Simulated assay, not measured.
Amino acid sequence: MTGDYAARVHGEEVQKERVDAFLRGGSATSQRGAGRVDMRLRRVGATSHDRPAAERQRRRWATQVVLIDELARRTCAKRDLPPPPEMQPPSTLTVPEADVADLGSIIAAALAHSPAARALLSALETEQHIPEEAVRDYYDRNRDRYLTPEALRRGVDPYGATAGPADFLTYNQVRDGIARELRQAAGRTAFFGWLDHARTGVEYAPGHEHPGDPSHQDHEHRH
């Protein structure tokens, strides 16, 4: 039915009902880690003057979460990945604080609630090659992260002249963890690049534009 879509991806419609279902299920919590998400889902305390704008942005924000799920689902199919489960409207929408800070609330929410987005991110992480030199360089440049518990208790300055080899975890002890962190970071960068490219074929219905799109009056610079 004409007008029942929130967006078109290369001409194929993403139905408004998917956004509505996500909004109906997405009752946000106020617990630690969900602050920015809570603001976008349920502007508790919003005045009668700013409530319409908040509701418009709430819908635009939810459209982006649903769209990422749709784009990821299509990309998983193109990559012959196992079909991920459908995204279910969350009964409670919570996203770790660190993920919101690192990824932005839209991508963090999509990864928290879209099996397809998580599957794609996992595939991208697996594809990243981290050279041994990069792992070693990270270890050498971040000595403060690898003090032993005893050195931490003594307040050893990791970059001071008195710090000795015994004050640090060895490279072999932490090497796999560093490589995992660097691979995760590289995978996230690849995911951002994929999303920027995938969005180029998207057309939004009025009222479903990106929350940061400056062409509408309620736009925000945050993601």
Rank of each mutant, 00 (worst) to 15 (best):
M1A: 12
M1Q: 08
T2D: 12
T2V: 02
A7K: 06
V9N: 05
V14W: 01
Q15V: 04
E17L: 11
V19H: 04
V19K: 00
R24H: 11
G26C: 11
A28I: 00
S30D: 00
G33P: 03
G33Q: 11
A34R: 07
G35H: 11
R36V: 13
V37P: 00
D38I: 06
R43P: 01
R43N: 10
V44M: 14
V44L: 15
D50G: 05
R51A: 13
R56T: 01
R56G: 07
W61H: 03
Q64Y: 01
Q64I: 04
V66T: 00
V66P: 09
L67D: 07
L67K: 08
I68L: 14
D69V: 03
D69G: 04
D69Y: 01
D69K: 03
E70Y: 05
L71M: 01
R73V: 05
K78R: 13
K78F: 10
P82T: 06
P83C: 06
P84E: 00
P85N: 02
E86F: 08
E86S: 13
S91C: 08
L93N: 01
T94A: 12
P96E: 06
E97Y: 00
D99V: 00
A101W: 02
L103G: 10
L103V: 04
G104P: 06
I106V: 15
I107P: 02
A110G: 03
A110T: 01
L111E: 09
L111I: 09
S114I: 08
P115Q: 05
P115I: 01
A116K: 01
L121M: 05
S122M: 04
L124S: 09
L124T: 01
E125I: 11
E127T: 06
H129D: 12
E132K: 09
E132T: 01
E132Y: 01
E133P: 00
R136N: 02
D137G: 12
D137M: 09
Y138A: 11
Y139N: 04
D140K: 04
D144G: 15
D144R: 10
Y146P: 11
L147W: 14
L147Y: 11
L152M: 15
R153L: 14
R153Q: 14
R153F: 09
R154I: 04
R154C: 10
G155S: 05
G155W: 08
V156E: 11
D157P: 05
T170K: 14
T170N: 12
N172S: 15
Q173T: 14
D176W: 11
G177W: 08
G177M: 10
I178S: 13
I178V: 10
R180Y: 13
L182A: 12
R183G: 15
R183T: 13
Q184F: 14
A185L: 14
T189G: 15
A190I: 08
F191H: 09
G193S: 09
W194M: 10
R199I: 05
T200G: 02
G201E: 10
V202C: 14
E203N: 02
Y204V: 03
G207I: 06
E209N: 03
D213M: 04
H216V: 07
Q217M: 02
H221T: 13
H223G: 07
